[in-house]
């Protein structure tokens, strides 16, 4: 908001938008932490938060960051594929072994190559990446091996990376809008779905499914992105903002782990559904990585290989 620059004696007001609700870790431990750190630093920066998709849906807000109407946003990597395909590889099935692998990759030079190319192509800066918790399968049967997916209609989100993941895992993907998912599972319109634990809990899917299989097949990465407004900040402001984002990455990772542990414990105690923790992750990962290595091409393949090369396995 150009007006604000003058009215507030040089303070730059930044809008930070996202789609998460106040009780989700991305807001509580992510957006809030960034805003608190920056606002208390007193470097002429003020962040205003707009959560719960108040400023539009995911795809819409990516376009708004590109046009400079939203300054900072938190987006899934696969959604960012709409402006730069290779970044969606962060959401490829079993690209990362776990959250530590993601951190190791983000600390590596390879990630710098990716974010630089992303900024070059789109004018959007990626300030940080965290995992909102790995995605797991839910269904009315346990899913321990790729064969268990046979004949099950599993709902995957409609974007290309997710559909590629479905194929990589050997699942039959079917489309249902997120808003209609609960009813579709309850009525058996689809037989299973996959989401991180925070979404599974907020949608109360334990009411309508019998098994949660901890496949952890995708890290569900969130990227904190910023418009070209980044270039208007002075060095001090950039440092404060960058540090705030890094603080948030640590906080979210801790919060997600704590929340997941609490939620799983609640489910186990209440016996809402059966939690399958002996999924044959190696079999799934082997199958997925083989498929993805064959399927990715060009820049996307390079990103995928760079990610795999930072694996400690």
């Amino acid at each position: 908001s150009g007006e604000g620059d003058v009215a507030n004696g040089g303070t730059i007001e930044l809008t930070l938008a996202h789609s998460y609700n106040p009780d989700q870790p991305q807001d509580r431990c992510g957006a809030q932490v960034i805003a608190d750190d920056v606002n208390s630093a007193d470097v002429g920066l003020k962040i205003e938060l707009f959560g719960s998709s108040q400023l539009g849906g995911d795809a819409d807000r990516v376009a708004s960051v590109a046009s400079g109407d939203i300054d900072i946003d938190i987006q899934g990597a696969s959604a960012l594929g709409a402006v730069y395909e290779p970044i969606s590889v962060l959401d490829a099935a079993y690209a990362f072994d776990d959250a530590d692998h993601l951190a190791a990759f983000m600390a590596s030079d390879a990630s710098k190559t990716l974010t630089d190319a992303f900024a070059e192509e789109t004018g959007i800066h990626a300030l940080g990446v965290w995992s909102a918790g790995a995605r797991h399968f839910t269904a009315n049967t346990p899913i321990r091996t790729p064969d268990d997916l046979d004949g099950l209609r599993i709902r995957f989100p409609g974007s290309p990376q997710f559909l590629m993941n479905a194929k990589a895992l050997g699942a039959q993907a079917t489309e249902v809008a997120y808003e209609e998912l609960y009813l579709a599972l309850q009525q058996g319109t689809v037989e299973g779905q996959e989401n991180p634990i925070t979404n599974i809990k907020s949608q109360n899917l334990s009411e309508v499914q019998d098994y949660l299989s901890l496949s952890a097949h995708q890290l569900n990465t969130n990227v904190v992105i910023m418009s070209s407004k980044w270039d208007e900040l002075n060095d001090e402001q950039q440092t404060v903002l960058q540090d705030a984002v890094e603080h948030a990455v640590t906080e979210v990772t801790t919060c997600v782990a704590d929340d997941e542990e609490t939620t799983l414990e609640e489910w186990r105690t209440a016996g809402d559904w059966e939690i399958v923790d002996d999924v044959d992750v190696d079999a799934f990962q082997k199958k997925a990585v083989a498929y993805l290595s064959d399927t990715f091409t060009g820049d996307s393949l390079e990103v995928f290989e760079a990610i795999r090369s930072t694996s400690s396995k």
């Binding site: 795809a59 395909e85 789109t122």
Partner: peptide
């Protein structure tokens, strides 16, 4: 004139 870099989420059709 400006939304060419944004692709639709599924079809990847330039907006």
């Amino acid at each position: 004139t400006t939304q060419g870099i944004i692709k639709s989420p599924v079809l990847r059709l330039p907006m």
